[in-house]
Amino acid sequence: MATLPSLTKSALLLACALAAQAAMAVDFRTAARHGVLLYQQPQDSATKLFVVSRGTPLEILAEQGDWLRVRDRQGSLAWAKKADLSATRQVEVLRTSNVHGQADSASPVVFKAEPGLLLNLLDNARNGWLRVKHQSGQEGFIRIEEVWGA
Results as ranks from 00 to 15, higher is better:
residue 83 A to E: 13
residue 11 A to Q: 15
residue 45 S to D: 10
residue 116 G to H: 07
residue 2 A to P: 14
residue 116 G to W: 06
residue 141 F to N: 03
residue 86 S to L: 09
residue 99 V to C: 14
residue 14 L to V: 07
residue 116 G to S: 08
residue 18 L to P: 06
residue 12 L to E: 15
residue 44 D to S: 12
residue 123 D to A: 15
residue 76 S to I: 05
residue 2 A to F: 14
residue 55 G to E: 06
residue 99 V to Q: 11
residue 132 V to A: 11
residue 60 I to L: 02
residue 148 W to K: 03
residue 119 L to H: 07
residue 103 A to L: 04
residue 63 E to I: 02
residue 129 W to V: 02
residue 127 N to E: 07
residue 144 I to R: 10
residue 142 I to G: 00
residue 109 V to M: 03
residue 146 E to I: 02
residue 36 V to D: 02
residue 147 V to N: 09
residue 68 L to F: 03
residue 12 L to W: 11
residue 87 A to Y: 06
residue 96 T to I: 11
residue 56 T to N: 01
residue 103 A to E: 12
residue 45 S to E: 09
residue 48 K to F: 02
residue 53 S to A: 08
residue 91 V to M: 10
residue 146 E to A: 12
residue 150 A to I: 00
residue 76 S to E: 10
residue 141 F to V: 00
residue 84 D to F: 05
residue 2 A to E: 14
residue 54 R to I: 04
residue 140 G to N: 10
residue 121 L to G: 09
residue 92 E to M: 14
residue 131 R to T: 00
residue 23 A to C: 06
residue 28 F to L: 12
residue 130 L to H: 07
residue 1 M to H: 13
residue 63 E to D: 09
residue 133 K to Y: 02
residue 114 E to A: 14
residue 97 S to M: 06
residue 45 S to N: 09
residue 127 N to P: 01
residue 14 L to G: 08
residue 50 F to Y: 12
residue 56 T to A: 01
residue 149 G to T: 07
residue 56 T to G: 00
residue 27 D to L: 15
residue 99 V to P: 12
residue 74 Q to I: 03
residue 23 A to L: 03
residue 55 G to H: 04
residue 121 L to S: 05
residue 150 A to R: 03
residue 66 D to A: 13
residue 60 I to D: 00
residue 22 A to M: 09
residue 133 K to C: 05
residue 46 A to D: 04
residue 91 V to N: 10
residue 113 A to K: 07
residue 17 A to T: 14
residue 90 Q to V: 09
residue 136 S to Y: 02
residue 70 V to I: 01
residue 144 I to S: 10
residue 110 V to A: 12
residue 43 Q to R: 12
residue 11 A to E: 15
residue 66 D to Q: 11
residue 108 P to T: 08
residue 97 S to G: 01
residue 105 S to F: 11
residue 24 M to I: 06
residue 65 G to V: 00
residue 76 S to R: 15
residue 123 D to G: 04
residue 129 W to C: 02
residue 102 Q to K: 11
residue 88 T to S: 12
residue 22 A to E: 14
residue 62 A to D: 09
residue 12 L to D: 12
residue 57 P to H: 06
residue 135 Q to E: 13
residue 47 T to H: 14
residue 136 S to Q: 08
residue 55 G to W: 05
residue 101 G to A: 14
residue 137 G to W: 05
residue 149 G to R: 07
residue 91 V to E: 11
residue 29 R to G: 09
residue 34 H to D: 15
residue 13 L to R: 15
residue 87 A to Q: 13
residue 102 Q to S: 10
residue 95 R to D: 06
residue 111 F to L: 10
residue 127 N to A: 08
residue 57 P to Y: 01
residue 142 I to E: 01
